[in-house]
């Protein structure tokens, strides 16, 4: 299924979020999110629980009204985009209609789209072609997710939004799910998914948007987000290091972030060469020095955790 290129004058963005904010009580769930996603991009919205991923997605889909800010999908309001069948989504904790077969449930929803794929086809694409006559309350956790994926595919959407799609799946189902997804997205369609599985974002997305406390703290191609924070990590033992000394490490060239546990320190370094030279100049007695390439895990931890014991955790990260 390859798509025709968008006609001239078609909106260049699949998703356009501008200044999106939402607070619940005293909590700023989403605190100024700007995001532009071009057609064909596969974007991971990555962040720990409470980072604002689900609230952002709900506002994106028009399910929650933002306190301020604007959402455009293909240049339209979320409602217009949904009505036109441009959007498919797997919502978090979404259930299936009880006491009905999968096929009948899909047929009922299918009738609510202006044009939709046949139910057999979406089931096959979701990898559950044999479940049409199974009742929804007799599905396994993984099967339910696949059926929900089939629901999202029904309108043959140009944008698919997935909120923690593999949360209830085992490793094998997860792999199969992403294989189906990849096949579907190969036609140049836009995918936006929220996850807190780092490997998932790394393996599947070509762009990662890191969220923390309702704000975008990093946004770029997967490889660059990885390189950005902690291209490398330096670990060393510095005997007798005090708090002032630890804070001093954070000011060394090439160091983005410092973590200390007793004498052992971990430096997250955009430029580990410069950092290592400076470290050895400042602490010639440093022992057990280790330089390792940082994975996404490290970037994620470095950017999203609030480590109260870390004196430089609140320091601005600049390049």
């Amino acid at each position: 299924m390859t798509r025709n290129p968008p006609p001239p004058g078609a909106p260049p963005h699949s998703v356009h979020l501008a200044g999106l904010r939402k607070r619940y009580g005293g909590v700023r769930a989403v605190d100024g999110v700007d995001l532009v996603v071009a057609p064909g991009e596969v974007v991971a919205l990555l962040g720990p629980n409470g980072a604002g991923k689900s609230t952002t997605i709900d506002m994106l889909l028009g399910l929650t009204r933002p306190d301020s800010g604007e959402v455009r999908l293909f240049g339209r309001s979320p409602r217009q985009a949904c009505t036109a069948g441009l959007v498919g989504a797997m919502l978090q904790n979404g259930g299936l209609l009880p006491e009905i077969t999968v096929g009948k449930m899909l047929a009922a929803v299918r009738a609510l789209y202006p044009r939709a794929l046949p139910t057999r086809e979406v089931l096959a694409r979701a990898g559950v072609g044999d479940l049409a006559d199974t009742r929804t309350d007799r599905l396994s956790g993984g099967q339910r997710q696949r059926v929900r994926f089939a629901l999202a595919l029904l309108p043959d959407p140009d944008l698919i939004v997935l909120d923690e799609p593999t949360a209830a799946m085992d490793v094998a189902s997860r792999r199969a799910f992403w294989a189906s997804m990849r096949a579907w997205a190969a036609g140049g369609r836009t995918v936006l998914f929220a996850t807190h599985y780092l490997e998932e974002a790394d393996a599947f997305a070509d762009r990662i948007v890191l969220l923390r406390r309702g704000r975008v703290i990093a946004d770029g191609p997967t490889t660059e987000v990885k390189a950005l924070v902690g291209g490398r990590t330096i670990r060393a033992t510095l005997r007798g290091l005090n708090a002032a000394g630890l804070a001093g490490l954070g000011r060394l060239p090439g160091v983005a972030r410092v973590e200390g546990r007793g004498d052992a320190v971990t430096l997250t370094c955009p430029d580990s060469d410069a950092a290592l030279r400076a470290l050895l100049a400042a602490h010639p007695a440093a022992e057990d020095i280790e330089v390792v390439g940082a994975g996404l895990e490290d970037a994620f931890v470095a950017l999203t955790t609030d480590d109260a014991t870390d004196p430089s955790a609140r320091q601005e990260i600049t390049r």
Binding site: N4, A18, G19, R23, F74, G75
Partner: peptide
């Protein structure tokens, strides 16, 4: 966040350039 902010603050964001006609797209509205 300004709790009294109006619902459309998009214009003040540099990234908010909605190029292209709003009614465009690859599909009829339906």
């Amino acid at each position: 966040a300004d709790p009294t902010a109006a619902s459309a603050t998009a214009a003040s964001t540099p990234a908010a350039t909605f190029a292209g006609p709003l009614t465009g797209g690859t599909r009829a509205g339906g």
